[in-house]
């Protein structure tokens, strides 16, 4: 049965189903037993599955991340949560040097079935250490997959898929999406990793985006339609692997690529997509690529700076308009 539920409830439902159906699944991380710490996404889990499987940890990211990797090597299926991406740097060694390399470095003998669920939690003048969106950092590392659900439906389906994948998957959700509602089936289902989705069909411009920015991209496309500009919006859903087939098909159709990403601009997701277009669809491009992302600046606190820092739907639409204007006819 399908009903409308919020993004955060969709995550919660997936966690209940995973812990229910897979005795090897564990939920580990800071705040998983707290009613509020991870935004109510873990409600009811401790009551139902107990402290053996729902493990609230001390503030020890380096060790606890490594412990989750070790548990995966020993046959468990841990889901490890970071209440904020910013706190992952302490754990980076265990992820990048250990989890990511293990399967390859030992000649495919052992996999690391691990979901690293991590939350983008920004805005509100929280500044540079409480606002980061690090999808590009993780996507750069061979051996890690990266997914970014933008809707409640994808939040649930991608969490199930990440859990079943058998590799280390970085599952990135976004607090700005938590209250958004969507039609979500009650029963478990998966959204395939590596597959994007066309959210709006269009013919003039391909606008590729992810997570919260995919939502803003749809709003921008609707606004641009009023001006007679037809925008095809692709929600990437997976950052790595990328749905290159879907992207290239659309780029070849429209001849124009815009990327809207919530991470930093340089060396980021938008750079990777631009490279894809240049390498694989160069002859189809009618215009240079347009990238809308965060400036190469740490997140500032003050509200006036935040307003400029984070692009919204208006910014996407107006940048696309200005860019189309510049184009040689």
């Amino acid at each position: 049965m399908t009903r409308k539920i919020t993004y955060v409830r969709a995550i919660n439902e997936a966690l209940h189903q995973i812990l229910e159906s897979d005795p090897k699944a564990l939920l580990i991380g800071q705040g998983v037993t707290s009613p509020w710490y991870v935004g109510a996404s873990t409600l009811g889990l401790i009551q139902k599955f107990g402290p053996e499987r729902v493990i609230d940890t001390p503030v020890s990211e380096n060790c606890t991340m490594g412990a989750a990797v070790g548990a995966a090597l020993a046959g468990m299926h841990p889901i490890f949560v970071f209440p904020r991406m910013d706190f992952m740097y302490y754990a980076l060694d265990q992820l990048a040097n250990h989890a990511a390399n293990w399967h390859y470095m030992f000649g495919r003998q052992l996999g690391v079935p691990l979901v690293v669920w991590t939350i983008i939690n920004r805005g509100g003048e929280q500044a540079a250490q409480h606002s980061q969106a690090l999808q590009a950092l993780f996507a750069h590392i061979p051996g890690l997959k990266v997914v970014m659900p933008g809707t409640a439906y994808d939040a649930k389906g991608l969490l199930h898929a990440s859990h079943q994948d058998g590799n280390p998957v970085i599952y990135i959700d976004e607090r700005w999406l938590y209250q958004n509602e969507d039609d979500v089936p009650e029963e478990p289902y998966t959204v395939p990793i590596g597959k994007g989705v066309v959210r709006e069909k269009g013919s003039d411009v391909t606008l590729a985006a992810n997570s919260y920015m995919a939502l803003k991209a749809i709003e921008a496309a609707k606004a641009l339609a009023q001006d007679g500009i037809s925008v095809e919006v692709i929600d990437l859903r997976s950052i790595k692997p990328l749905d290159e087939t879907m992207l290239l098909k659309s780029i070849k159709k429209t001849g124009r690529l815009v990327i809207a990403d919530g991470g930093w601009k340089s060396f980021g997701v938008s750079a990777e997509l631009a490279a894809l277009a240049a390498e694989e669809a160069f002859n189809h491009l009618k215009a240079p690529v347009l990238r809308i992302a965060l400036p190469d600046t740490p997140a500032p606190a003050s509200r006036t700076l935040e307003k400029t820092y984070y692009p919204d739907a208006n910014r996407i639409a107006s940048e696309i308009k200005a860019w189309l204007h510049k184009e040689p006819k």
């Binding site: 003048e125 500044a127 540079a128 500032p300 606190a301 003050s302 509200r303």
Partner: peptide, 18 residues
């Protein structure tokens, strides 16, 4: 700084925690 103003000790870039 708590008010996010330019006259703050971190010029409005840090807020209460910085």
């Amino acid at each position: 700084e708590l008010y996010g103003k330019t006259t703050g000790c971190s010029h409005g870039r840090g807020g209460s925690m910085h």
